[in-house]
Design a protein around this nucleic acid. Structure first.
Length: 108
DNA sequence: TCCTTGACGAGAT
DNA sequence: CATCTCGCCAAGG
């Protein structure tokens, strides 16, 4: 299932790191790419999640961009759902809708 | 093989 | 803070 990309060893690394993010913490795409040993592949973290099948247990909602913002992906309210999930875990959004990565950014 | 696209990021204006 | 530009790298047309 989940016929993913052909360059897939990276995806496994990305997903493994994301699975290691504790509840109430977040990581940016760039941080995940760095932690995987691929510093310039931040975009591909998003690609991996985009191809993520439903059955897989990965806390995708704990992944935000470098500004601490939720990256819009055009799907029906999925970004709003992500914010709710994070707030349930205790993650605080500022007035401008940003997360303070100094506080909630998880350094694997 | 060339060109465009993209759940990104950093720096300049 | 809002925009713009540029760098990055794989996928798909």
């Amino acid at each position: 299932m989940a016929k993913p990309l052909t360059t897939n060893p990276q995806h496994a690394a990305f997903l493994a790191i994301i699975q290691g993010i504790p509840e109430g913490w977040v990581m940016s795409y760039g941080m995940i790419a760095r932690a995987a040993g691929l510093p310039r592949h931040s975009r591909h973290v998003g690609v991996a999640l985009k191809h993520l099948p439903e059955g897989v247990k990965v806390p995708w909602w704990r992944v935000v961009n470098g500004e601490g913002r939720i990256s819009a992906r055009g799907f029906d309210g999925s970004d709003e759902r992500q914010r709710l999930l994070l707030e349930e875990e205790g993650v605080v959004f500022s007035d401008t809708g940003k997360i303070d990565l100094k506080r909630f950014g998880w350094m694997g």
